[in-house]
Design a binder for these strands. Sequence first.
DNA 1: CTAAAGCCTAGTAATGCAATAGGAAATAGG
DNA 2: CCTATTTCCTATTGCATTACTAGGCTTTAG
Lengths: 142, 142
Amino acid sequence: MLVSTKGRYALRVMVDLAEHQATGRIPLKEIAARQAISEKYLENILATLVRANMLSGMRGKGGGYVLTRPPEQYTVGEILRLTEGSLAPVACLDGDCKGCSRSDECPTLDVWKNLDKLINDYLDGVTLDQLVAPNEGYDYVI
Amino acid sequence: MLVSTKGRYALRVMVDLAEHQATGRIPLKEIAARQAISEKYLENILATLVRANMLSGMRGKGGGYVLTRPPEQYTVGEILRLTEGSLAPVACLDGDCKGCSRSDECPTLDVWKNLDKLINDYLDGVTLDQLVAPNEGYDYVI
DNA sequence: CTAAAGCCTAGTAATGCAATAGGAAATAGG
DNA sequence: CCTATTTCCTATTGCATTACTAGGCTTTAG
């Protein structure tokens, strides 16, 4: 499985926040309820996004989370790479373990490299605003 | 990780067999040595391929494995789907668990469907003969 | 008959995923 | 200042999957 629940939830949450931008800061509790995700689990995910400055979190009464950029400036790729650690389709291409000893003679390496590029290019081409339902994220328009 | 060692090894082994087609049946021991894969682990993988009729195995002295079709009639996609079980990038698209309860309203589902198609189409477009090193698989030519 | 090979069913160790637990620190409003 | 609200942080647990091993049975050629 290329993308686990952590990445899937993260993406859904980012879309949720994009759709409710106009409401200001949104508390975790609200997102968890709307998205049917365990509050405690969601904490981990949001913490990751905050640490990477994709979200700003504020504590205390009236606190909550808000996007740090406009939705069109987030790509699905960066959100998933952050939360998943890597989108490499095979271990051979994973950041830390740079190539196995057989990489010179490996007849399949190019397949993995092409696949990796395909995946990342596609996901980097989709931005958050493309996932926001039309006529949402503008609750203030009425 | 989309593709685990099982799928990676399977692909390498299939290429190996394609390259040594002309030699007739190849015993597991030989493949394992050439590809530096544990013999016992390789047994599992080859058994899967034989059960799906991608390889023919024969026991006894002089036995071993051989492709059942010409290399250009195998796609990387089918080899990996068989050995991995599925190439779905997310659990949502995995065969058995047909869509979650939220699939109607899920804003991210299309991303996963497109990604799934992208991956499968690419891997189904690569055939085994394309991975065989030039001037190999023809050892009889001298 | 025997050596060489594949076939089959389990079992195990290690890893990573999904989720939980408990509390500390910050903030707004009264 | 006090309290309710809310994020932030570290650790732990249960579970499933992956990677690999063990041991024995069956088939085949010579």
